[in-house]
């Protein structure tokens, strides 16, 4: 049974329908990349899965149970963690406090503060700094570490390379295998198609709120993916 099974969900902002019947599945331990142009609905999809935005239709099965409609704060307890777009560290908290707050759901597992510092050694000397004093890359590391602190079964990452220099992006992506190694399922949104394909097992391309193309990352036809990304087939 898949860990995550999204069945035909829709979501709206007021009258604007941002998601229109999206389905996807993610097996335990795999990495699924979600790609799509700006405004395709990637962030909205992640927000619907983690409970930050209620889906107006459809079911979201997590570990076989329908979680649609449950608030985000409960879903974290069940093991769905989110690394939000734009990182969103708590500005008045130090790096260390930001990590500690990630352990608020009190879920047991391999991830502890020390493990996160091992994963991102750059953060050690920054532990007493406030979030806003950090570079973008360091902030992103804290945001990922903060999500890991809840020992999630499913981690959602929204554009973790946003606005970062290529070297820093590489550095951050190097942490992915360690995260997967703990058995965590990763769902990541990435604008860079090559990178998305190279780090994931499956890929799903969204276009204007629906799934335009989905497949196995290693086998997918690149041109078809690019067409789906830009909506060229329409």
């Amino acid at each position: 049974m898949a860990l995550l099974d999204v069945e035909n969900i829709s979501a709206r902002y007021g009258l604007f329908q941002a998601l229109r019947g999206i389905s996807l599945t993610a097996e335990e331990g795999e990495t699924l990349a979600i790609v799509g142009a700006n405004g395709a609905g990637k962030t909205t999809l992640l927000r619907a899965i983690c409970g930050a935005l209620p889906a107006s239709e459809g079911r979201i099965l997590f570990d076989g149970e329908d979680i649609a409609g449950q608030p985000a704060s409960q879903l974290v307890q069940r093991g769905i963690a989110m690394v939000p777009e734009g990182r969103r560290l708590f500005p008045s908290l130090t790096v260390e406090d930001n990590l500690i707050i990630g352990s608020y759901p009190k879920r047991k597992g391999v991830w502890t503060k020390d493990k996160v510092y091992e994963l991102f050694p750059e953060l050690v000397k920054r532990r007493m700094n406030r979030g806003l004093d950090l570079s973008g890359g360091e902030q992103q590391m804290v945001a990922i570490g903060r999500a890991l602190m809840s020992n999630p079964r499913l981690i959602l990452m929204d554009e973790i390379s946003l606005g970062l220099a290529p070297i820093v992006v590489n550095q951050i992506y190097r942490s992915l295998p360690d995260i997967s190694a703990a058995g965590t399922t990763v769902l990541l949104v990435e604008q860079d198609l090559n990178r998305a394909l190279s780090v994931s097992d499956h890929v799903t391309c969204l276009l204007e709120g629906h799934v335009e193309l989905a497949g196995v990352s290693r086998e997918i036809d690149r041109q078809a993916l690019i067409d789906a990304y830009f909506g060229a087939s329409q």
């Binding site: 983690c50 930050a52 704060s73 974290v76 708590f90 500005p91 608020y104």
Partner: peptide, 11 residues
């Protein structure tokens, strides 16, 4: 600081 993000931490 940010109630929406705090919600994502299970708060």
């Amino acid at each position: 600081d940010d109630p929406n993000t705090a919600e994502l931490m299970g708060i």
